[in-house]
């Protein structure tokens, strides 16, 4: 109870003042006035009068959930496609008459092109039988078609669009920032901790006097190099994870450890892992992260990651 109280006081920059934090600070003020330290501690913790030593200060770290936003639009599901096609068809059937003479000079090439395109769209929506066939002589139809094709060539139409699948998806390159264009990607680092390789977000400790979001940015650059532009979205942490304490020594009170997550965006550049502790990195979707990280870490982070 007491240590949590202390942790709140340390993080009071980001959290609004809680009643617990207030009471703790007030007890400090009275302590400064007259009463010796040990007696204050024992009076504040009347339930545990035997313990004279303060528990160790909690250890605070920050981690950055570095995000690459989607680059491409989502692919609609078959149901969505059917729905949109149906609605577009109703809309086409009910639309107001198009003011041709307001937009086109009569008999102009642009009008011819528009008419041809419009007819194709009508066919697509209602079928060939439904659209009335206008009589146009064969020579005129051929001439129109040739003229419209020439216009399209002049305007540089028909250029190939880039594929929606990047080659990084085909090769399974997990370090590329271009992979999985429709999804939110997150940066995960493979680090060796206590002789074990774990996947985790970029993380580091907080020095005295640092604001948490600034410490987060600093730690990100310390582990991932300066060769990228990033932006920490908010001063508020978006999540907290408390690693389980190794219960080795019973008498000794372990310092509590809390990792605060901050959301960041990568704007340019790429990660270059710094130092021997960082073995590898990867840009992963939420579903790809789950099998890599440990179970209690996943429980701590799964709700701050986007499903899309």
């Amino acid at each position: 109870m007491h240590s949590r109280n202390a942790a709140r006081c340390i993080t009071r920059r980001l959290a609004a003042e809680s009643p617990l934090a207030c009471s703790f600070r007030r007890s400090l003020a009275t302590e400064a006035q007259s009463i010796p330290e040990s007696s204050t501690a024992s009076s504040a913790l009347s339930t545990a009068p035997v313990r004279s030593k303060r528990p160790p200060r909690p250890q605070i770290s920050t981690a950055v959930v570095l995000n690459r936003s989607p680059l491409l639009t989502r692919t609609p599901s078959p149901f969505e496609n059917a729905y949109y096609a149906y609605q577009a068809r109703i809309r086409r059937a009910l639309h107001n008459p198009f003011p041709y003479d307001f937009y086109f000079k009569q008999g102009s090439l642009l009008e011819t092109r528009f008419n041809m395109e419009e007819k194709a769209r009508e066919w697509k929506a209602f079928g060939r039988d439904f659209v009335e066939e206008e009589f146009v002589s064969e020579e005129k139809a051929a001439a129109d078609k040739a003229a419209v094709e020439q216009l399209a060539q002049q305007e540089g139409e028909g250029e190939e669009l880039l594929p929606r699948q990047h080659e990084a998806d085909a090769t399974g390159n997990r370090k590329s920032l271009d992979r999985q264009g429709k999804r939110n990607l997150y940066l995960l680092l493979q680090a060796s901790e206590n002789g074990k390789d774990v996947w985790r977000f970029p993380q580091g400790g907080v020095e005295k006097g640092d604001l948490l979001h600034q410490a987060a940015q600093k730690d990100l650059y310390a582990e991932c190099g300066e060769h990228m532009d990033s932006w920490i979205v908010s001063r508020n942490p978006i999540g907290v994870y408390k690693p389980q304490q190794p219960s080795a020594s019973a008498g000794e009170a372990q310092p509590e450890h809390a990792v605060f997550f901050f959301k960041g965006h990568i704007l340019a550049g790429q990660v270059r892992p710094q130092g021997p502790a960082i073995k590898d990195f990867a840009w992963l979707t939420k579903q790809e992260i789950e099998p890599l990280v440990e179970k209690d870490y996943w429980e701590g982070i799964k709700d701050v990651l986007s499903d899309y």
């Binding site: 936003s69 939110n184 908010s234 508020n236 965006h265 899309y308």
Partner: peptide, 14 residues
């Protein structure tokens, strides 16, 4: 997919 989350974090008042 992107903006709503960021705005929630940016404008959050504890």
């Amino acid at each position: 997919s992107t903006l709503q989350d960021d705005l929630m974090y940016l404008t959050y008042k504890h």
